[in-house]
Write a protein that binds this DNA or RNA. Structure first.
Lengths: 333, 333
DNA sequence: AAATTTTTCGACAACGTTGTCGTAAATAAA
DNA sequence: TTTATTTACGACAACGTTGTCGAAAAATTT
C-alpha cells in the first residue's frame, strides 16, 4: 500500500494525500479526515526508507559504546532509548569492544545520512578523535558521555569523576588507611585521569605521600589483571586499601583476597565505581561510588535531540556533570 | 559527494560509475580501477538512505527485548551485534519494558521496510503474537529467542529450560530439601512454564507432592515482590529451599533472609537462573543455572541472517536448544 | 460588479541510487 | 569479407515520498 495507491482509491492526487497525512494547512479539514479515514482503513503507513531518503533525515541515532556486559551501559541504553522512543526516533547500537579501529570503522559508516546524531562513550584505546570530528563536520551532532575527550567543543555528559575520586579516597583515609592503591584500566581515558587526580589531591590534602607504585593500570586480559593484583597484595608492604576505578577490578580483588585469605575490610578495604545491584549482597557488602547511569543516558539523549531539532546546535558546547553517589557498605568499615 | 558528481569528475555516466563500484561484470577492469581510485581519492561513499530505498533493503535488523538492565540481555546483544557487524548489518534496539502495548507499537513501526529482520524476546505480558505474525506476513523474518511463543512456525532459540528446571530441583532434593518453593515472574512466559514443568516432574519423580502454594508468581513491583517472599519465609511451615526462575527474585530472597536472620543454606537453600558474574562473590556464593547468553544471541542472529539471505526461509522452523550450566556454589550446600 | 486575497488542490520535479535496455565498438565465427 | 557474438558503456526509468509552484475556486475586499 503506497501513497499513490491510496490516492487512487480516494480520487485525489498523491501530493494532496501526502499533505493531508502530514496535516498541511493547504488541505481542507474535510479532505484531511477523508484521507485519514481511508489510510486507516487500508492500513497505510509511510515507507520510512522513501521518506528518510527524500528528507535526508533518518530519524535514527547511533549509540557507540565499548561493551554492554556490565551494569553501567545497560541502564545508559535504557535512558537513551526512553527519550528516543518518546521522540519517535530509532536507536542503532554499535559495540567497539574497546577497539579503536572498530570505533573508526563504525563512525565511517555513519557519515552518510544513516543517522541524525551520535552518542558515544569512547573505547579505552582512543586518544585521537578526528574520526568523530569528521562526523561532526558532516553536520551530524555528536554528544560524548562518560568516556569523553577533553579537547573538543562537542557537548559532553559525565559524572563528577574528580569529586568522586577525591571523596572515595578521603573516605578511606578517614577510616584509617595510609597505603591506598589506585587500580584503573586505561591511561587514555579522561575518566581515569580525573578519578586519579581526585585520589592524588585527597592524599596530598591529608598529608599522605603519593606512591607511584600504588597507582596501577591493569591490562585488559583477565589473567594478567589477576596476576597484577595478586602481586600487589602479596608484597610485604601491601596496601591497606584498594580503590578500583572500575567494578571488574574490585571483584577481582575480592577473589584474590579470598584466595590469599585476606580479610576485607580488616586487612584490606575496598571501594569501587560500580552500578551493580549485587554490590550490597557481596561478602562483605561492597562500598561503591554509583553513577546515575540511566540519567546519564537520558541527559545525553536530551542534549542530542536539542541539537538535532534546533539548527543552532553549534552553540551547544557545555559539559554536563551529574552527581555520583558514595554508598558506604561493609568493605570499608 | 554523490554518484553524479563522481561521474562528472571521471567523465563517465553515473550508471557506469555505479556499476563499477559494485564490481559489475559489465565494466572493464581498467575503468573499474579508475573509478575506485577516484572514489577513494574523493572519499565517496554511497548514500545508504538512497541505496536502501532503491533496493528496499535496509541492511538493518531489529532487536526487541524487555529490558537491558540485567546480565542476560547484555551478552545477548553482544552476540547479536558481533554477527551483524560481520555481515555488514546494523542493529536497532527497542525495549518493551515488559509492556505488550509497547511491543505492539514497536512491531507496527517495523513493518514497512525499516528492517530486514527481527529478533525478539517477548514481554512478560505477551500472550498473543499476531503483531509478530503481521511482521512475518510482510516477508520480514522473525526469530524468537529465550522468551518465545510455542505455537508458531517461526524459528526459536532457547536454552533447555525444562531440563534446567528438572536438574535444579533434583539438585535441591539430593541435598535434602523437601519443601521447595518455585518463584517466577509471569505465568505467560513459556520459559516459566517449562522451568515449572521441570520442577514439578522432578518432585514427582522423587515422590514429593507438588504444593501449589509453593508455586509463586511474583508481581513486577519490587515492593510487592519483597512482601510476597517475606510472607513466604515468615510462615511457620516455611520452605527449605527457593528455586528462583529469575535472578532478581533470588537476590530479593537473599535480602529477606538477611532481614529475617535466616541462614543460607542452613535454613533455606537458594538456586536461581542467573548470568551474573557476581553470583560467585555473594554471601554465600549463589548456585546458578547459567545460560549461554552470548551464544544465544549469536545463534539467533545466525539463523536470522540465513533467512534474510536465502529466500527459502519459509522452511526454517526449527527450534534450537542450547545447554545451560548448573554451577553449584555455597547456597545449596 | 470588479478586483483582490485566500483557500484548496494538482502537476511536477527532485532526492541518489540501481537495474533494464539499447547500442556502439571490439572480437569471434561464418 | 560478412555476419554473429561479446564487451563496455550510456540513456533512462524507476523506488515512494516531499516540497515548490501554479492555478482554479471560493471568499473577501474594494
Amino acid at each position: 500500500m503506497t501513497l499513490k495507491q491510496l490516492a487512487k482509491e480516494l480520487n485525489l492526487s498523491f501530493s494532496t494525500v501526502s499533505k493531508a497525512l502530514r496535516d498541511s494547512h493547504e488541505i481542507s479539514a474535510a479532505t484531511k479526515s477523508r484521507v485519514l479515514a481511508k489510510a486507516k482503513a487500508l492500513n497505510y503507513q509511510v515507507n520510512p526508507l522513501a521518506s528518510s531518503f527524500r528528507k535526508q533525515k533518518s530519524k535514527t541515532i547511533a549509540v557507540i559504546i565499548p561493551e554492554v556486559v556490565n551494569d553501567f551501559f545497560g541502564p545508559v541504553i535504557s535512558g537513551i532509548e526512553s527519550i528516543a522512543q518518546q521522540k519517535g526516533y530509532h536507536v542503532l547500537i554499535y559495540l567497539t569492544h574497546e577497539d579503536v579501529e572498530r570505533e573508526i570503522a563504525i563512525t565511517q559508516v555513519l557519515q552518510n545520512g544513516r543517522v541524525d546524531g551520535v552518542l558515544i562513550s569512547l573505547s579505552e584505546q582512543t586518544t585521537d578523535t578526528t574520526h568523530l570530528d569528521n562526523v561532526r563536520q558532516k553536520e551530524i551532532p555528536v554528544v560524548y558521555f562518560d568516556r569523553i575527550v577533553e579537547n573538543t567543543d562537542a557537548p559532553k555528559v559525565t559524572t563528577d569523576d574528580y569529586c568522586s575520586g577525591f571523596n572515595a579516597t578521603e573516605h578511606l583515609i578517614q577510616h584509617g588507611c595510609k597505603r591506598i592503591a589506585f587500580l584503573s584500566i586505561s591511561q587514555n581515558l579522561s575518566i581515569s585521569h580525573k578519578r586519579l587526580k581526585g585520589y592524588e589531591d585527597a592524599l596530598n590534602k591529608n598529608g599522605i605521600k603519593v606512591h607511584t607504585n600504588l597507582i596501577i593500570s591493569c591490562e585488559r586480559d583477565d589473567e594478567k589483571c589477576a596476576a597484577t593484583i595478586r602481586k600487589l597484595l602479596k608484597q610485604k608492604n601491601r596496601p591497606d586499601a584498594i580503590f578500583a576505578a572500575v567494578e571488574k577490578l574490585a571483584l577481582k580483588t575480592y577473589e584474590i583476597c579470598h584466595e590469599l585469605k585476606l580479610n576485607i575490610p580488616t586487612d584490606v578495604k575496598v571501594i569501587t565505581f560500580s552500578n551493580s545491584y549485587t554490590a550490597a549482597l557481596l561478602n562483605p557488602s561492597l562500598t561503591t561510588i554509583t553513577q546515575p547511569a540511566f540519567e546519564m543516558g537520558n541527559e545525553a539523549a536530551t542534549i542530542l535531540f536539542k541539537m538535532i531539532e534546533k539548527k543552532g546546535y553549534q552553540s551547544m558546547k557545555e559539559a554536563t556533570t551529574l552527581a555520583s553517589q558514595l554508598i558506604v557498605r561493609s568493605s570499608t568499615k
